[in-house]
Design a protein around this nucleic acid. Structure first.
Lengths: 253, 253
DNA sequence: AATACTTAAAGTAAAAAATACTATAAGTAT
DNA sequence: ATACTTATAGTATTTTTTACTTTAAGTATT
């Protein structure tokens, strides 16, 4: 499948300029020296705060610094598969919401050579799972996105861009639901959106607005073990949302 | 700067697992065989239609098919520089609005090997400039985005994603201005947005809305050579927009 | 020079939506 | 039984959006 070994041969029969515009400065195979990695911004939500999962490096360079979870991509692996693998290895979680948000490719960003990294973010509701078992990281921790430590490599800019993308998505798509447990109350939803957007909603109006959208499926259950009137539980109705979306509905809060 | 030649040496002294999580299946250097390319979706606007610039391939594979403009990235070149180069080589245009929108990395997407491509889109107002001079393309043409020919490689999906991103951006950011000449009338702006969004605005209300945003600078000039009352010309005031944006203003049409 | 025609630009009333606030219901804890 | 907490429904006011009307300012024609 990979023809790189025969590239020079191909070039020999004048394929050099047949694929692309450039007059190449060097043999075609010298263009095939990029490394590709995934860096994953894992968001969680706990007690009114948006968190991000970081691991502490136990090896040089940047020993002791915190970093995003990431890994080199195997040349036979698709990007999204690689991203899912990275997350699964660290947290054991599968089938998590994942979204590619930006690709970082500064020439100098990595000491090993020209490593281009694709940034993904994922939204996780079970903030407890993070069994760390890695040869290069000694611990993993959730950090409030407003109180971050110093990060390794260019992970600060990756994280910043990831946060920016999340905050932007949240305003126009029902993104946040992935951060809540499957069943949630309207107040829990409101508090999440307040944390994400950074401002308060009027309780009554928030309820009205979100219910009128018709994207929540009411369950015949109520919150248990609360010392006050228990609230009804809802579930996000993704199917319905997709239908509404196709008919021109747009989610706005 | 590039340490790839010495990677195996490094691996020899047990750096293998110090950067990343994985226990690698093969020598580290075998991960550095990716090619990286840029594919650029060039949007234009002419007589009420949104257009995209395509070139026709004059070489196998996909000879005769239309394709996005693109090229391999030089290992010593930053991504955005590479994207700007691609555009400049084909159109001669510099300092064009460019935005990275998605990275495509299917294992099988390219016959030369594992080539990951970063998708950019650009917005161009001078739809006339496209002096084609290339060894692999015989012509360049603007296509209405609703009437596209069959495309080479996976360019159909890249283009689709690019169009989707543009249409999405347009609703929440003042993106479209780059498609108009520097000075424009309110009706011209309205017609552009109608083409981009696919529905009509009430003229009077559109004017009111956009002027109240305070992101247009009125000029002391009017449209010339028209056979009716000439409209005032405006210019997009990007500086002002940035300030408003930081204060929480969000562009919505 | 008067008239017709086209588009610009301003204004206005009705409808809809967002907002702020009030009242009541349904549960737990003491 | 009473106090307390949160859920849930409702309503009146303000603001925004929408649909429509009127007037102004230019060109082209007769």
């Amino acid at each position: 499948m990979f023809l790189i070994q025969t590239l020079d041969l191909i070039c020999g029969i004048n394929m050099k300029s047949s694929y692309y515009i450039s007059e190449y400065k060097m043999p075609l195979k010298d263009y095939f020296i990029f490394g590709l990695s995934i860096d994953c911004v894992v968001f969680g939500y706990h007690e009114g705060e948006i968190k991000v999962l970081l691991v502490q490096r136990d090896a040089e360079p940047f020993k002791g610094h915190w970093a995003l979870i990431g890994d080199l991509v195997d040349p036979e692996q698709n990007l999204l598969d690689a991203a899912n693998n990275v997350l699964e290895k660290l947290t054991g979680l599968k089938n998590i919401y994942m979204k590619q948000f930006f690709t970082f490719g500064s020439v100098d960003r990595h000491p090993l050579g020209r490593v281009v990294t694709v940034g993904y973010f994922s939204l996780v509701n079970s903030i407890d799972h993070h069994p760390i078992a890695s040869s290069w990281a000694k611990s993993a921790e959730w950090f409030n996105i407003n109180h971050l430590p110093e990060l390794a490599f260019d992970h600060q800019s990756i994280l910043t861009k990831g946060i920016e993308t999340l905050k932007n998505d949240v305003r126009h798509k029902p993104t946040g639901f992935e951060l809540l447990p499957d069943k949630f109350t309207l107040l829990e939803l409101q508090l999440l959106y307040e944390a994400l957007l950074g401002y308060k909603f009027d309780k009554s109006n928030f309820r009205k607005k979100i219910l009128e959208m018709n994207i929540l499926k009411p369950l015949n259950e109520v919150k248990e073990n609360v010392s006050h009137r228990p609230a009804k539980l809802f579930r996000f109705d993704e199917k319905r949302y997709r239908i509404l979306e196709q008919n021109g509905f747009s989610f706005e809060l």
